[in-house]
Design a protein around this nucleic acid. Structure first.
Length: 899
RNA sequence: GGGCGCUUAGCUCAGCGGUAGAGCGCUUCGUUUACACCGAAGAUGCCGGGGGUUCGAAUCCCUCAGCGCCCA
């Protein structure tokens, strides 16, 4: 006997372990079944489950469970990525907290040992938490981007792309994070609005005492590296100065005034200082004009004079080398203050304006990034992107919703060289060895590099490996095939590549989607996935992004503890519409929990009535309208649920299930079945019981993808199959139902009758304890027959004693409702509130009249009749006839109570 | 500045050419032996504003306004 209340905590862990133990999550490479593959976008190994994960993995698990039930050989590939910067930061913090020596004094090898140790201890957090959510990942296949196999794939890809000249070394400006002291990619930089200043600085014109050109800058400290001043070629104000030189204050170096369209006459003073080694735009200007590009800040963002030392000159009232030497080694922000102060003393500051502007920050380190000229490894993203763009253009990969393709195209068509090297220790060390004479040997192993060097030099030479590692996304980009064993040709690779769908948020289109597409197409010649399903972000109930600083984060595990994983998952499905963010408050989960409870209680009621699975029961044999009706409704729900999942409409899927279970099965089928269950044994009872067990089974299967736990528990408890077997039971299909239309019409009539009677009673204030007979006026024989067949249900649900045709005159004191052709009377003399009854009838008449008028107007329009589709015109004609008939019956009813 | 999305019942959102919907909330009633995480009934809408296309517009087009996001 089921407990009175649903307690998800009582079975979730047991069921998950049962599934996992029985191998229910495993794919079957050897089977001939059509595969269905989802590659998990690997979560960060440092991560723990947050609501965004709950959303994305609920969606993925729903798809995987559904396709698995459809008989597909489902592979949901689990694993995590090594998260270079994040993990290194975590372990460095750990070392500091333990009072240990820092990474550099520990040494690379010892530090990496410590990272692996951390990974072994704490790296599996999220994979454990995913189990709480019910995620049916194929755990024995779990991969980690630093695994040997995946690392081999990384080396293979790097060496191959290098040979193809799609990976190269270059010295150009990179986004440098002075805190983490590494290059980072454009995507790891986020703009933050900062309240700063716009400093207007005077640069004296060479040889023309008292004349200045004023430049405006937000970063005065970079002036040490200025090598030009740019003005717009058509800016008349500066026309005479172009080609002249100005003296760089403090430094004393003379630098040219150049004409360049980069300078915007509308902005600042119209003249802009050019610091090629410290600004991306200035770098381009500098290249165009062939000026020097000295670096004046070191890796930690401190003033560095090494590259301008030789050019320092003392100029009276303008430049002061001794002051500059005193700045060496100072932090960039301290230097800014000192430089501004000194320039003010020299009266070279014209004015200082408050200025709010966007400053690029490193998303991990959180400090302003510093563009820096360094040697780095780059991937030729533009070349790699071309096939990826084409794959989306030709529909080989399709985005759902489609509008995200624009975002993808916009970024991919303007893609910049991808800086793939990072000055970190944790990650895939770049397989490049440096030898004498600037020779670089890119090989998969040190032995091969040495062999290559020997071949080149004709002797053994000392080689030094590049200390840097690759961007984590470089290895993530290979995930769709590296996890399947590539570069080995494995059966898994043959079967599960390309995958079916990648599920992720729009914020990740550039990271996973774009890079997996580029690498997949280049190395496999096929797209890595056919669909990209983009879902929204999880926000709080007010629509705010969840963040620790706002204090509005919700912990999915805490919600699971409180309401069960099914409640959370079903809530997520219900709220996940296309292209929309998900506003999720605790209350929403609490509300949807009641759906699970409703299902549980309905099952419990059936159990109390001896309903048990009967696989031999044949739906096609059903003869009673009730059985046929519920089977037909289940067919419809199945079709709706399947179509919704096919279209990634998780909201429609959840709504279809909800409507059917609550609105049809519980509200009407069970209520209609009660008199049958309480009645005598016989064929009718047997058939309704048969239909009940059949449809309950269908419901459990339909709901399993989104509510795996409660459905499996009920499935097992009822004995629909062995323990833990629902997960591998077939997805329902429509069953044949004879004369479904007739059953539908009959049940609709009964439902309408009961609903109308209830409404009339409620509106004329009849106490629930009062029961009445129903008198049917003008009822067709069919209606009388239906009333007779359903008398028990009508009694029960309509507070009715009996239903009889009206003989002779209508009694005094009746409440009346129109049901189809019949007028139903409830003799309620003495209890009826006549004023209320009259008002009710008038209101119904008003509604019918309003309808009739609208339709008459439509049909009176010659254009409508001539141009609208025939079936629409016909439908309106029928509706008009029905509305007029209803008005007539209501008029008669009103006349009856008038006296 | 460029692009995308949103604006429908108190709230959250479906609907996207042919009778305005759901869930929650609200009001009233209810101990009918599955369920008060329940049942019954009810109220609530210039479908953001304005123009256009159409026999017909919440739905298509234009425009304005407000909100949000992405990219510069």
């Amino acid at each position: 006997m089921l407990d009175k209340t649903l307690t998800p905590g009582a079975f979730e862990t047991r069921l998950y372990e049962g599934w996992e133990r029985s191998g229910a999550f495993a794919c079957h490479p050897e089977s001939s079944a059509q595969p269905f593959t989802i590659m998990i976008p690997p979560p960060n190994v440092t991560g723990s489950l947050h609501m965004g994960h709950a959303l994305t993995f609920t969606v993925q698990d729903t798809l995987i469970r559904w396709r698995r039930m459809q008989g597909r050989d489902a592979l949901w590939q689990p694993g995590t990525d090594h998260a270079g910067i994040a993990t290194q930061m975590v372990v460095e913090r750990l070392l500091a907290a333990e009072g240990n020596q820092d990474r550099r004094s520990l040494g690379r090898a010892a530090f990496l040992d410590r990272v692996w140790q951390w990974k072994a201890e704490s790296g599996g957090t999220i994979t454990q938490q995913l189990r709480r959510l019910g995620a049916s990942l194929d755990w024995p296949r779990e991969r980690f981007t630093m695994d040997e196999g995946l690392s081999a794939a990384v080396r293979e890809v790097f060496v191959t792309l290098h040979r193809q000249k799609l990976i190269y070394r270059d010295r150009r400006l990179v986004n440098w994070d002075p805190k983490l002291q590494t290059a980072i990619s454009d995507l790891e930089v986020e703009s933050r609005e900062v309240k700063g200043h716009l400093w207007h600085l005077r640069y004296p014109v060479e040889g023309q005492p008292g004349e200045y050109i004023t430049v405006a800058t937000t970063r005065p400290e970079t002036m040490l590296g200025d090598t030009a001043v740019a003005v717009h070629p058509e800016d008349a104000r500066f026309a005479t100065l172009v080609g002249k030189r100005v003296i760089l204050p403090l430094v004393g170096r003379a630098i040219p005034v150049v004409a360049d369209e980069y300078s915007d006459p509308e902005k600042g003073t119209g003249a802009v200082k050019i610091t090629p080694a410290h600004d991306f735009n200035d770098f381009e200007v500098g290249k165009r004009h062939g000026v020097a590009m000295p670096t004046i800040l070191d890796a930690e963002g401190r003033v560095f004079l090494g590259e301008i030392e030789g050019e320092l000159r003392a100029v009276e009232g303008v430049a002061d080398p001794d002051f500059l030497r005193g700045l060496a080694g100072q932090d960039r922000f301290a230097a800014r203050k000192a430089i501004v102060a000194r320039l003010e003393e020299l009266e070279l500051v014209e004015k200082i304006e408050p200025h709010t502007h966007q400053v690029p920050h490193g998303d991990r380190g959180g400090v302003p990034i510093e563009p820096r000229l360094t040697w780095q490894w780059y991937a030729d993203a533009a070349t790699l992107a071309k096939p990826a763009i084409e794959a989306v253009e030709t529909g080989k990969t399709q985005f759902v919703p489609k509008q995200w393709e624009n975002t993808f195209f916009a970024w991919m068509r303007d893609i910049q060289p991808w800086c793939i090297s990072r000055q970190l220790w944790w990650g895939h060390q770049i397989p490049a060895w440096y030898g004498p004479e600037g020779m670089i040997f890119v090989e998969k192993t040190e032995a091969e590099a040495q062999a290559a060097a020997r071949a080149h030099f004709g002797r053994d030479v000392p080689l030094e490996r590049d200390p840097d590692v690759l961007d984590t996304w470089f290895s993530s980009a290979l995930w769709p095939f590296s996890t399947l064993g590539w570069p080995e040709q494995t059966p898994e690779l043959a079967k599960y590549y390309p995958g079916d769908v990648l599920v992720t948020g729009f914020d990740i289109i550039f990271f996973w989607v774009a890079r997996m597409m580029m690498m997949g197409l280049h190395f496999k010649g096929e797209v890595p996935f056919r669909h990209v399903y983009i879902h929204g972000l999880v926000r709080d109930e007010k629509g705010q992004k969840m963040s620790k600083s706002k204090g509005n984060v919700m912990d999915p595990l805490e919600l699971i503890d409180a309401y069960g994983a099914d409640a959370l998952r079903f809530t997520i499905c219900s709220l996940t519409g296309p292209g929309r963010d998900v506003k999720l408050g605790r209350k929403r989960v609490e509300d949807f929990r009641s759906f699970g409870t409703k299902l549980w209680n309905a099952a419990r009621f059936l159990e109390m009535n001896g309903i048990a699975p009967d696989p031999t029961w044949d739906p096609a044999s059903a003869t009673t309208p009730l059985a046929r009706w519920v089977l037909d409704a289940a067919n419809r729900a199945t079709a709706e649920a399947s179509a919704a999942l096919e279209a990634y409409r998780f909201d429609d899927y959840a709504a279809a299930c909800y409507r059917f279970v609550w609105g049809s099965f519980c509200d009407w089928f069970i209520e209609f079945a009660k008199p049958v269950f309480n009645g005598p044994d016989g064929p009718e009872k047997a058939e309704v019981m048969g239909a009940a067990q059949h449809v309950l089974g269908t419901i459990l299967r339909l709901l399993h993808p989104s509510m795996p736990f409660v459905t499996e528990e009920l499935w097992d408890r009822f004995g629909y199959g062995p323990e833990y077997s629902l997960i591998r039971t077939a997805w329902p299909e429509a069953v044949p139902v004879a004369d479904a239309e007739a059953a539908h019409a009959e049940l609709d009539w009964v439902v309408t009758l009961i609903t109308e009677v209830r409404a009339a009673r409620a509106e004329v204030n009849v106490a629930p304890s009062v029961t009445t007979p129903l008198l049917l006026k003008d009822a067709a024989p069919e209606s009388l027959a239906r009333a007779a067949r359903w008398i028990e249900a009508i009694r029960r649900l309509g507070r009715v004693t009996e239903v009889t045709p009206l003989e002779g005159e209508a009694p005094k004191g009746v409440a009346q409702v129109v049901v189809g052709e019949a007028t139903v009377m409830l003799p309620l003399a003495g209890v009826i509130d006549f004023a209320a009854e009259r008002a009710r009838l008038l209101k119904a008449r008003g509604a019918a009249e309003g309808d009739a008028k609208k339709i008459e107007a439509k049909l009176g329009n010659a254009d409508f009749v001539a141009r609208a589709k025939e079936e629409v015109v016909e439908e309106n004609r029928e509706r008009l006839v029905a509305a007029k008939a209803e008005i007539a019956r209501l008029d008669a009813a009103l006349a009856r109570i008038a006296g």
